[in-house]
Amino acid sequence: MLKIILLMLFILSNLAFADDYAEKNGPSVKKTERFAGRFFIRNTLMEIFGKSAEPIIEANYFKAGKQVGGPCDIYEQVYHEQDHMEDPTRECPGGKPASKYPHFPKTNILRSSHLLKTCYELVYKQPIPSSLQGQNDFIKSVSKKFYPFGGDEKLRETLSLKFKKWDLESRKEALFTYCLSPGWQRL
C-alpha cells in the first residue's frame, strides 16, 4: 500500500513539474515565414504596375532565382516545333538549374535588396500606373491592388495619417511603401 502511495506521489509530482515547466517555457513550436517565389512576385507586380514593368522586374528580381526562390517546372515547357515553345512564359530561364531553386526562400539580405531596387524602379522610374491615377481615395485603391482580401489595415491607417494631401511625391512614397510591405508577399 505504501509503495502504491509513494508511486502515485511520484507520478503526480512529475506532472506538476511538467505543468510548471510548460507554463514557464510555453509550447515549443518553431514558426518560419514563407515568402512567395519569383513567379508570384513577378505576376503580382505586373498586374499592379502593368506590362511595362516586366523589364524592370526581369532585370532586378526575376533573374536572381537562386536568391529569391521560385523554381520553374521543366515539364511545363511544351514544344510543338523545334525551338518554338507553346507558352514562352513557361520557359525555364537559366536552364535546368532553375528547376532546383528553392520554393520558399528564407528572407535574406540579397532578396531584400533585389526587391528594394525593383520596387524603387517601378515607382520612381515609371509613371504611376494608370489604374491608380486620378483616384480620389488613392490609398484605398493601392490597398485593393496589393491586399485584395485585406490585412493591411494598420499600414493603410499609418499612411492615411501621414499624408494629408496626395500630391505626386506622397503617392509615390505610399506606393513604394506598399510594394515593400511584407504582407502581400507572404504565403
Binding site: K154, L155, T158, L159, K162, E173, F176, T177, L180, S181
Partner: peptide, 8 residues
C-alpha cells in the same frame, strides 16, 4: 519608406 513600415 522603411520608417513607414517600421511603424506598422
Amino acid at each position: 519608406v522603411l520608417d513607414n513600415l517600421k511603424l506598422v
